[in-house]
Design a protein around this nucleic acid. Structure first.
Lengths: 157, 157
DNA sequence: GCATTTTGCTAACTACAGCAAGCATACTTG
DNA sequence: CAAGTATGCTTGCTGTAGTTAGCAAAATGC
C-alpha cells in the first residue's frame, strides 16, 4: 500500500528524500520547518504526488544537508547522462586540494561528480555518506555548522 | 515608458537570457521553438514578469547552448557563494582529462566550477548588462545552428 | 481506562507558471 | 501605397504547485 501504483510521478526523488529525512531522524514537520515549507506538502512530495520546484528542492537540500545539485539530478532537473563505469579519483583529489573552493563548494562539486560517475548506487551510497548518522540522537541539534546562509541575494521567493 | 516599475521580479536572469539570445542571433520565436516553450512566455521571462521553472530553464539552456547550471545560478536557484579570487587550473585539467565523463558532463562540471571560483564575467554580467542595441558581437561559441536537441526533453519527473 | 503530543495524511483553497490566440509595430517587397 | 511577414507584446485561460485547516493512528503519560 505504501507504493501507490497509480500516481507515479517520479517517486525516485520522493524515495530519496524520505530516505534522507529518516536517515537524519527528522520528522515531516521538523524537516518542513527547516525547509520553510508546509508539512503536508513535504509529505506529498515524498510520496510523489507533487513535484517540487527548484526553490523548494534547494531549501530541502539545505535542511537535509545534502547538495541541491544531487536533488536536481534526482528530480530530473539536471542532466546526469551517467558515465561509463568506475570513478576517477583525480578529479576528486583536485577538488579537495583546491584552495579556492570553500568546504561547501567542494562538497557540491564532489556531489555532482558522484552523480555523474556512479549513480544507481547513489541512493544507498548517499544515505551512508551522511555525516555522523549515529550521534544524531534525540534533539535535532541542527547546529547548522556552515551556512545560516548569508547569501546576499534576497531569495525573496 | 514601457518599463513598468511595478514588476521587478529579479530581472538579472531575464537580462542574461535576452543577452544570450540576441548574441546568438535568435528571435523570441526561434528560441522558444528550440526550448519547446511558447514565445510570449519567453518574452515575459526575459522581462522578468514570469519566473521560469527549472525545467524551462533547462530547455532554454539547451537551446542557447549554455549550461543549465549557469542559468540556475542566475535564477538564484543554485548558490554560487563567490569564491576567493583566482582560478585554479588543476581542477579544470582534471575534469578535462577524466575519461569517465562525457563531453557534456565535463562542460557542466567546468561550468559549475567557474560559477564557484568565478572570474571576470559574473560580476560584469550582473552590473552592466549592456543596453547596446546593435552589434554587440557577443562571441558565443554557437557552432551548430541546426538543432541542438540532444535529448528528448522528457524531463517528466 | 482517558488526555496529550507527535506522527503522517486528506481536503479545500489560493497563487502563479505556462499556454493559445490575438495585437501593434516595424521591415520588406511589388 | 497595399499585401506579406517578422519582430515583440498583451490578454484571458487552465493546470498545478504550495498553502492553511483539520483528521486518524501511534506513542507517550496520568
Amino acid at each position: 500500500m505504501s507504493r501507490n501504483p497509480l500516481n507515479d510521478l517520479g517517486s525516485s526523488l520522493g524515495d530519496y528524500l524520505r530516505e534522507q529525512r529518516q536517515g537524519a531522524r527528522l520528522s515531516l514537520r521538523q524537516l518542513s520547518e527547516l525547509a520553510g515549507i508546509s508539512n503536508p506538502y513535504l509529505s506529498q512530495i515524498e510520496r510523489g504526488l507533487k513535484r517540487p520546484s527548484a526553490e523548494i528542492l534547494q531549501q530541502l537540500a539545505k535542511g537535509l544537508e545534502v547538495s541541491a545539485e544531487s536533488l536536481y539530478v534526482k528530480a530530473g532537473i539536471l542532466d546526469e547522462e551517467f558515465g561509463p563505469d568506475r570513478i576517477d579519483l583525480d578529479v576528486r583529489r583536485a577538488i579537495q586540494a583546491d584552495a579556492k573552493l570553500t568546504a561547501r563548494q567542494k562538497k557540491t562539486l564532489l556531489d555532482v561528480y558522484e552523480s555523474f560517475v556512479d549513480d544507481e548506487e547513489a541512493t544507498a551510497a548517499h544515505a551512508l555518506t551522511q555525516p555522523a548518522p549515529k550521534t544524531r540522537t534525540t534533539r535535532i541539534t541542527r547546529s547548522t555548522p556552515k551556512t545560516p546562509h548569508g547569501t546576499p541575494h534576497g531569495a525573496h521567493l
